[in-house]
Amino acid sequence: MTHVVLRDLTRRFGGVTAVDRLSLEINSGELVAFLGPSGCGKTTTLRMITGLLLPTSGDVLFDNKSMITVPTEKRGAVMVFQKHLLFPTMTVGQNVGFGLRMQGVEKREMQRRVDEMLELVKLPGFANRRAHELSGGQQQRVALARALVVRPKVLLLDEPLANLDANLRLEMRELIRNIQREMSITTVFVTHDQEEAVMLADRIALMFDGLLQQYAQPQDFYQRPTSARVAHFFRNDNLLAGIRRGAQVETALGTLEVDADRTQQPDGKVLVTVRPEDVRLMPNPDEGNCVEAKVLLQVYMGTHTQVQLDLAGHTWMVHSPAHFQAQVGQTITVQLPRSNIWLLPESAS
């Protein structure tokens, strides 16, 4: 149960700024995902939390105490890497007991806690196996047990599921989530997979190029992205240029009504967006916000049909019911429901 604060955390490598003035707060027992494409600075941030890497400037606080001068081995922030998981020269039991051995825990107590932890990760009786006798998923679980057995203040997972196949990944996701809830350990995990972040995390910190883009609950990244780039990362490329005046936005396709309280953009140039699953291809005439669109492409996806539309020169993607039928090239009327419209700042990208 540790409250973590990162304050203006910056790390430069030579002339490159890997992490730029990152500030965020992680509540006790919260599970936070650092999300972003590779090279965005998420792993660097993780290493700075553990103390394996010192920040160029800024501070890391655990329960309001600065950790900058505390060496890694005394911080209680345990990291699980994605590769080279287990100590190859030790048995599974010795691996799990390593942290306790370092603390000088008495042998019988150590044995008991190791067995208990192996039980928790569903590998009872594996204590005498050698690391190389285990499958990838089992090694992953042993690594997790090894981290949890010391009751870490903060648990840090670096792409913990990247090397597992799809089924195993689902299983591990569930295991991590359950154990994390049960023990209520403050946890940070790094991933480049937005789906994984959404499924696991209480909150997501999305980073691009060392800069924090948005730190919010998963649904906000769908409903309230802060920029076109964030929306793009969450698979929404539907953009329409416009000029906002109060509850109305002027666009090339006419005036759209928006919920004034649902958007933080000031009056002026904006980008209108509606998520692919929220655009209505069968408009309800009572609600307005109907615009003309040309069908560019249809792809049947089984559970739905993906329709590519042209909206005044912008290409939009829409998920329609699977039975939706239209001719390519046909002009249809689509509805941008007032409650689903979100406005983004007009950005250079």
Binding site: T50, L52, F81, F87, M102, A147
Partner: peptide, 26 residues
């Protein structure tokens, strides 16, 4: 690599213990 040593450090092993238990056997 350094991952195993880093893992050991986060688990509470000081530099000497890391060398003795992780680096040297490896």
């Amino acid at each position: 690599g350094t991952e195993l040593e880093d893992t050991a450090r986060t688990l509470g092993a000081g530099p000497l213990a890391v060398f003795r238990f992780v680096t040297l056997p490896g």
